[in-house]
Computed example of a mutant assay.
Amino acid sequence: MNPASVSTSSLAATVSTSLAEPSTSTDGHRRMFRRHRVRRHQTWLRRQGYVPFTAEAEDFAEFARRWAPYGGASGEETFLRFGMNTSRFSERLWQLVGEGQISNETAEQFADAYPAPPEWRNGNPRDESVSAVPVADNGSR
């Protein structure tokens, strides 16, 4: 066996292994920095009052907007898409509006097709200027 061929093949194996697997310390530091940056940005957004728009909210809003001109989706269509009946879909849709996942402007687009629950009929419960549940004043103080 030729010593030159052994060292060349072992050298080639070492080089190919080092090229295929980047240094874990550098790669790990990059990953940690990215995660830190994303977390810091998400914290800042939360402090600013921003609620991220989830994929579920996007699907619900888009589906409701698409079917609103026709008076809302049929029970069959709602069940096929989301696995729930129309009343449950409407309930979840307004729950997402209440959580801030769907804007009030978007909700106005489908309000006629998907009736708001009773607690929303006096205004958005999220809106502090409007009382969602009227409080009866019985005169006792």
Rank of each mutant, 00 (worst) to 15 (best):
T24E: 10
T24M: 13
S25L: 12
S25A: 09
T26G: 12
T26E: 12
G28L: 10
H29T: 09
M32W: 03
F33C: 15
F33L: 14
R34T: 08
R34C: 05
H36N: 11
H36F: 12
V38S: 02
R39P: 02
R40A: 14
Q42K: 06
Q42L: 10
R46P: 02
R46D: 15
R47M: 09
R47W: 05
Q48C: 07
G49E: 05
G49C: 07
G49K: 00
G49L: 03
G49F: 04
V51D: 01
V51A: 00
T54Q: 04
T54F: 03
T54Y: 03
A55W: 11
A55C: 09
E56S: 10
A57R: 02
E58I: 06
F60L: 05
A61I: 03
F63H: 05
A64K: 01
R66Q: 06
A68Q: 07
A68I: 14
Y70H: 14
G72C: 01
A73S: 07
A73K: 00
S74Q: 05
G75W: 02
G75L: 01
G75N: 04
E76N: 15
L80V: 11
L80A: 13
R81E: 13
R81M: 14
F82P: 09
F82N: 07
M84R: 09
T86G: 08
T86A: 11
S87C: 04
R88C: 09
R88H: 14
R88N: 13
F89G: 01
F89H: 02
S90M: 12
E91N: 07
E91D: 06
R92E: 09
L96M: 11
G98V: 05
G98F: 01
G100W: 02
Q101I: 00
Q101Y: 08
S103P: 10
N104V: 10
E105W: 13
T106A: 13
A107S: 10
A107Y: 03
E108L: 12
Q109C: 14
A111F: 02
A111G: 04
A111Q: 09
Y114Q: 06
P115H: 02
A116P: 00
A116W: 02
